[in-house]
Design a protein around this nucleic acid. Structure first.
Length: 484
RNA sequence: GCGCCUCUAGCUCAACGGCAGAGCAACGGACUCUUAAUCCGCAGGUUUCGGGUUCGAAUCCCGAGGGGCGCACCA
């Protein structure tokens, strides 16, 4: 290995991927007279006696390095580079006799050594253990990994640009909450030493965002992480990204339009079409999406007609017949919602807004203007999965207090996902929340659709895994010796 | 949390009750137009770990650990 000191900077002036476009007209065996500096990783190395070929890859693409013992500095060392080593190289752009556009290296410098390599040079790395735990390896070994992360970045960018264009203000609210609120979920718990107080990682930003609306921010959104202390699955990561959006003076019908337009618009920005292929099946996101009630969809799926007026015993029987558990405390609303999830939800492929929702399972939604048992809430279902949740916000502080108290009672009797009474939020509501519509959207789920992945880990750079146990005793001894 | 599947060289994989192997990477060498270059040579392993059955275990059984999938829960 070369003993030269690794430089602190390198004047890279040409992305590898731009060379083909700029110098495509060169004939085989011809030089361009143009000297460029490229930098990246050695992906393949083909020394051939007194000349050598190597494939250099950077973020933009690949280019061949062509070296000659007679004219390339430190030729011997160049031919001994390892796959994965970072190098910077400077030389004329030429096309070799065999027709490959190349940088004919005059000078070069090692920028980093790859001591570990990147797996099989042809097959790469496929072991999920390595792919998820050592994403840096996966990113280099598998091009599609980079593509998926790029799609995620484009989704976030498009989302922001579209909302900015609509006049929304992006805000940030606390991740550390004194009371977990805004969603039915088990929180992570932590502790602040100086305040000597228990804090929770947020399960949803909802309540803080509505307080900003109370404070006069009429159109706000937040894109960020929430945390739920629940199971991990191909569709669930303990930390996940959502966008929540609130706009004063609009209701749930306006929200559905906003939602479908936003999702379809993002899809158009990222993929150039609103008709995509997901898991080898066509999925058309072109608005408007269907609006349908739970009972309508249940009837379609099962042939059985149900409604909020169906006798509770019958609903219980149907749910048991569908193979689900039934809790005695559940009213008709919860039973119908469970029945829907059990029998009809997974079958919804094309986008559909399930609307309205039972009041019983919606502690933050405003009562439906036409039916006291319902709320003005919807959930968009795409490819069998909930993509989000939205509603006309509950604005009456007295009603909100009553709903919180119901939740707190459920919590006290063992439902550890039920909410608690949030006095801070109730006080804020008493300042006056105008009629407001708000929705949340699972960003990871949306990215999964656009990136065509069935597993959420594929579109999260570093998904949550059980911590790795590395044997470090030798390093610890070294450290102690140094300190002593 | 429960169920099913899986774990062999750095990577990708064979061997499936009878001497643990190949390709790539690595290491040494040859080669003046290669494209997963080619050729010669060399090295690489507590078969995830711990028990058990057996004359003999990577292989069969039990347990532990990591991972994947399904269920549950949700976005």
């Amino acid at each position: 290995m070369r003993t030269a000191v690794i430089p602190y900077r390198f004047d890279k002036d040409t992305p590898a991927g731009t060379i083909a476009e700029r110098f495509g007209a060169l004939e085989p065996g011809q030089g361009s007279g143009q000297v460029v500096s490229v930098a990246g990783r050695i992906m393949l190395n083909r020394p051939q006696g007194k000349l050598a070929f190597a494939t250099l890859r950077d973020e933009t693409g690949e280019v061949q390095l062509f070296s000659l013992e007679a004219s390339t500095e430190d030729f011997e060392a160049l031919t001994k580079l390892h796959l994965g080593d970072w190098v910077g190289a400077t030389g004329e752009v030429v096309r070799t006799r065999r027709g490959e556009l190349s940088v004919q290296v005059a000078t070069w410098v090692l920028l980093a050594e790859a001591r570990r390599g990147f797996g099989d040079k042809w097959k790469g790395v496929s072991d999920p253990e390595i792919r998820y735990r050592q994403r840096e390896v996966d990113l280099w070994a598998n091009e599609s990994t980079r593509t998926r992360l790029d799609i995620r970045a484009k989704v976030l960018r498009s989302m922001r640009e579209r909302l900015w264009a609509l006049g929304f203000t992006e805000v940030e609210t606390p991740l550390l909450h004194p009371i977990p609120g805004g969603a039915a979920a088990k929180p992570f718990t932590t502790h602040h030493n100086a305040l000597d107080t228990e804090l929770f990682l947020r399960v949803a930003p909802e309540l803080y965002l509505k307080r900003l609306v109370i404070g006069g921010m009429e159109k706000v959104f937040e894109i960020g992480r929430s945390f739920r202390n629940e199971g991990i699955s191909p569709r669930h990561n303990p930390e996940f990204t959502t966008i929540e959006l609130y706009q004063a003076y609009i209701d749930y019908t306006d929200l559905m339009v906003l939602f479908e337009e936003l999702v379809a618009g993002i899809c158009l920005d990222v993929l150039g079409t609103t008709v995509l292929s997901y898991q080898e099946r066509e999925l058309d996101l072109t608005p408007p999406w269907r609006r349908a009630s739970m009972w309508e969809l249940i009837e379609e799926a099962t042939g059985t007609s149900v409604s909020m007026a169906t006798p509770i015993e019958q609903l219980r029987e149907l749910l048991v017949a569908a193979g689900a558990k039934v809790d005695d405390s559940w009213g008709p609303g919860r039973l119908i919602a469970e029945l829907f999830e059990e029998t009809a939800e997974a079958a919804q492929w094309a986008p559909v807004f399930v609307v309205p929702y039972p009041k019983e399972i919606s502690p933050l939604s405003r009562v439906h203007r036409d039916d006291a048992e319902l709320v003005e809430r919807f959930e968009p279902i795409i490819a069998g999965r909930e993509l989000g949740n939205g509603f006309s916000e509950l604005i009456d502080p007295d009603d909100q207090r009553a709903r919180f108290e119901e939740q707190a009672q459920a919590h006290a009797s063992g439902d550890d996902e039920a909410m608690l009474v949030d006095e801070e939020y109730l006080r804020a509501m008493e300042q006056g929340l105008p009629p407001t519509g708000g929705f949340g959207l699972g960003v990871d789920r949306l990215v999964m659709l656009l990136a065509d992945t069935a597993n959420i880990r594929e579109i999260i750079a570093f998904p949550t895994l059980r911590p790795e146990v590395l044997l470090r005793s030798v390093e610890v001894e070294t450290t102690e010796a140094t300190e002593a």
